[in-house]
Design a protein around this nucleic acid. Structure first.
Lengths: 335, 335
DNA sequence: CTGAAAGCGCTTACAG
DNA sequence: CTGAAAGCGCTTACAG
């Protein structure tokens, strides 16, 4: 293994000059800098990570939490983990992945062993057991997801309230007055899951404020439950003319499957918008308009926030990512 | 932050005694050991990770590669990453996640900076660009997946050949003579993906050796392609009486959906086995027998292999995980 | 603009 | 059974 001494010898300078030339933390004669960088790259020099952690103040590693709950949609979570990793690499940071059963113990461990410079907590729920812990850790932390109590916390998330209003606005602009929101299974709401609750609350408040007829329904994820839910909705006395779907991929696919079966055409007979989805709704048949939950957008902001709070006492704040509407022609005026 | 000196002072011993008492690397008087461990836990002592890396020979971190290709099934990959992390934690190891675009650069970087003690490469394909690299890194490495050339390599994977024979054997035992194998899209095979190729090859060889009629078909993943594929299969002059599915979840679901539509009953009219699946086939309608690809089983072996090769020059070898058959009554004698 | 040296917090021979 | 000390490879005041 080649060390800083090898580089110093090859460049004919002292090791402190090598260190400064490579870090740029003090001015160096251009010719000296060249000699050092040339020697370093010729020798394939990579600073020893452990020595750096020891001597410097940074480890260049962030901890990221793996999903806390088993029912977290795995591909979405993978997308978020990878998005964090990719964003972190742009700042020369690596990602240490903490497993579920380590949710709290692991955080405490990596914090007190000074293994990481900061923490990104993914998939934060309204009442999250990890929130109190991170407050006590004294390590820069950013949460992805907004807990009920955000005191002293830095949080990032899609603005689900704005996303909900955006969906409703698009529909009312076309003349819809009766809109149904098909959500997640009951237990998701009972457990305090973050954005399903926020979407449901905003949907209720906003449709009421706008004088619309907004109906919220939950459904289990199996095919039969989905069919029954949609059927009940459509066979009501005054059925909705538009659907806002905020549920897992298979449920949304099942809704569309049932509509096709029944010969209900989207958007001619019924308008449909998918909200907060992490999967590709343009591959549904038919393709469905979506206000997506974009892992890269959210995680880029989270990592930037974390990087910014590294040198300072972390600046608590809640940052909302603005929603975006992607049209695939699945909405039209009511029949 | 509490250091080894704090613990030594509190316990009234030297720092070397603290180190040895905690590591157990030399014998310590029981009373001394108690004093040390008590002091350590009272002070909440956690050794500084960087100092450990420096002084010791271990970092207690393994690198794990994120998916190399975009079409890798994300939930499966997440399961493998988490399975590695969980297994690693049992040996006091943490996991550093390398992103895709870092596939090779990241491996070289963490190796030469001595950030990790070993590497687990996930989702290895038949001809994998990372294989030559890891051979040159001089770091203990275990591959999950078997490349064409395994020289000097430690690899772990489900025994897909045995799994394929197991599926065929179960069917022939019931009297099936005409078996179709529905596989992945064409391009997966062209690109040298690991187990699809192995399953296809073994299916061809084994059905021929057994004097059976084995037919292999590929299908694109969209609903229309799947329907067309299954339809062609079933409307042939001599249609198969059993199907072995080795494809992504949505394709397998689409196959079953099409069968249901056509009024073809499983297993009365047609037997179906799912092979190498990472998802829950018991939730299909109907539930389908499966020879699963179990992330935990494979990754446990991979991590054990890596741990074993830490003190020694890595012992190259290919280790196959035996397949397991899980019955959900989706096979029966041919009609 | 550059160098000599202290020090980060451990582990592990070396002594006793 | 235990301790004093060297040393791991860096970073960063301190000098010049």
């Amino acid at each position: 293994m080649t060390t800083i001494h090898d580089v110093a010898r090859a460049a004919g300078v002292s090791i402190s000059t090598v260190s400064y030339a490579l870090s740029g933390k003090r001015s160096i004669a251009e010719t000296t800098r060249r000699r050092v960088t040339d020697a370093a790259s010729k020798l394939g020099y990579q600073p020893h990570a452990g020595a750096r952690m020891m001597a410097g103040t940074r480890t260049q590693i962030f901890a990221v939490t793996a999903p806390l709950r088993h029912d977290t949609y795995a591909p979405a979570h993978m997308a978020f983990v990878l998005a964090v990793a990719t964003a972190a690499r742009r700042h020369d940071y690596d990602i240490l992945l903490l497993t579920e059963d380590e949710a709290t113990k692991g955080l405490a461990r990596v914090a007190s062993s000074r293994l990481v410079d900061g923490i990104i907590v993914l998939d934060v729920s309204a009442r999250d057991e990890r929130v109190d812990l991170v407050r006590s850790l004294g390590l820069p932390t950013v949460l992805v997801g907004i807990p009920d109590d955000t005191t002293d916390l830095a949080c990032v998330d899609l603005d689900f309230e704005a996303a909900t209003r955006l969906a409703v606005d698009r529909l009312t602009a076309l003349g819809h007055r009766r809109i149904a929101h098909i959500g997640h299974p009951e237990e998701i709401y009972e457990r305090g899951s973050n954005f399903p609750l926020r979407v449901r609350a905003e949907f209720g408040a906003y449709t009421e404020a706008m004088g619309l007829h907004g109906e919220f329904v939950t459904t289990e994820t199996d095919g039969a439950s989905v069919r029954a839910t949609v059927q009940a909705l459509l066979e009501a006395d005054e059925p909705p003319s538009a659907l806002i779907l905020h549920a897992q991929e298979s449920v949304q696919a099942a809704v569309l499957g049932y509509l096709a079966e029944r010969g209900i055409s989207v958007p001619a007979d019924l308008s449909v918008i998918s909200l907060g989805s992490t999967f590709d709704t343009s591959r549904f048949e038919p393709a469905i308009d979506v206000i997506p939950l974009i892992a890269t957008a959210t995680c880029d902001v989270a990592v930037d926030l974390l990087i910014d709070s590294l040198p300072f006492p972390p600046s608590p704040r809640v940052q909302y990512v603005a929603p975006e509407y992607r049209s695939f022609d699945s909405i039209a005026p009511p029949p």
